[in-house]
């Protein structure tokens, strides 16, 4: 112990000798002018101001993402039950008409359902990707594919390469809570403005908060339904139904396909809204977690630098004092 203490004392006396140059510099500068001293003081310790500002902004961002997550969670709860209930609307149609995804027709219309707002993960690019694949799949000589776009985000993506094929775009769907009247008016507008043999509706089906399945629903025009019914298969069973009243089969089929379209659209819009909120929730969750990690790292750097500068100052003071006394 005594030896160690002696060494320390010795070291203290030796220290100014070993590093005489910087100490002399600081001494001289403190004697010459206070202005020069402050500039050296700035160079000596790293400024922590920038790190502190960065930490503040990261903390604010984290607050925002947390709030957005809460909002998305409460919106999701509201829309989830409605989406699940609306599945009962298209199921009878699929039971009756089947889901003829692979039908080969001339006028294809791809209805891409997306959201108006961003920050919701990859659901919009998924539905755009599926829509592009569908239009490529159904392309060929004397065939045409048109897009009907719901929502800003898919519009922004499809404008880049398929400008010419866009027939209609619809936005601002979610100003009010989604309801059947709204979607049916919308479906009616689509039917009036687009000529189609088959409508292919692309949307993200809500499975759970973290899982959305890109889905294609196909609605056939009455003529194609009749053509397919003659060809047999699932639709061939239509003839076994008896039609009441004075309506002909084609009239019934037309009404049916129009109503089917509005029902499928209603479900698609709801499912997509639900997936949007779920995706936003998980995206905001992970971004607040990332912000937390970042904040931890920044705090560590900040404290370490602060500690280092304190230590350097202490060493300087002590060595300065010992130089004066010793």
């Amino acid at each position: 112990m005594a030896m160690a203490a002696a060494m320390r004392r010795e070291g203290k006396r030796l220290a100014p000798l070993i590093s005489s140059q910087p100490i002399n510099n600081t001494l001289r500068s403190s004697l010459t002018s206070p202005l020069e001293q402050s500039s050296i003081g700035g160079a000596r310790s790293i400024s922590t101001q920038i790190v502190r500002n960065r930490m503040k902004s990261v903390k604010n961002i984290q607050k925002i993402t947390k709030a957005m997550k809460m909002v998305a969670a409460s919106k999701l709860r509201a829309v989830q039950t409605r989406a699940e209930n609306s599945r009962g609307l298209w199921q009878p149609f699929t039971a009756l008409l089947g889901d003829a995804t692979s039908v080969d027709v001339k006028k294809n219309v791809v209805v891409t359902v997306s959201s108006d707002k961003g920050l919701c993960g990859g659901i919009n690019s998924t539905s755009v990707k599926i829509s592009r694949a569908l239009s490529k799949l159904n392309s060929g000589p004397d065939k045409e594919t048109k897009y009907v776009i719901l929502g800003e985000k898919a519009k922004a993506q499809l404008i880049r390469d398929s400008k010419k094929d866009i027939a209609l775009s619809l936005t601002e769907l979610q100003k009010n809570p989604l309801n059947y009247t709204q979607v049916s008016v919308l479906a009616d507008d689509i039917l009036k403005n687009v000529e189609y043999d088959a409508l292919r509706i692309v949307f993200n089906k809500f499975h759970s908060v973290v899982q959305f399945i890109p889905t294609v629903s196909t609605v056939l025009s009455p003529e194609i339904v009749e053509r397919e019914a003659e060809a047999g298969g699932k639709l061939g069973e239509l003839d076994s139904y008896e039609i009441e009243g004075g309506e002909t089969k084609s009239e019934v089929l037309q009404n049916l396909s129009e109503f089917q379209f509005s029902c499928v659209m209603f479900n698609a819009v709801l499912e997509n809204a639900c997936s949007e909120q779920g995706a936003r929730m998980s995206a905001m969750d992970s971004s607040s977690r990332n912000a937390g990690d970042m904040l931890d790292r920044l705090t560590l750097t900040y404290n370490r630098t602060r500690q280092a500068s304190i230590t350097t100052e202490l060493i300087e003071i002590i060595s300065g004092a010992s130089a004066l006394t010793g």
């Binding site: 027939a167 059947y180 709204q182």
Partner: peptide, 15 residues
């Protein structure tokens, strides 16, 4: 409950 609100724009020649 049954409010209708959306905006629709037709496209022709990529515009």
């Amino acid at each position: 409950r049954e409010k209708v609100h959306f905006s629709l724009s037709k496209w022709s020649e990529g515009k």
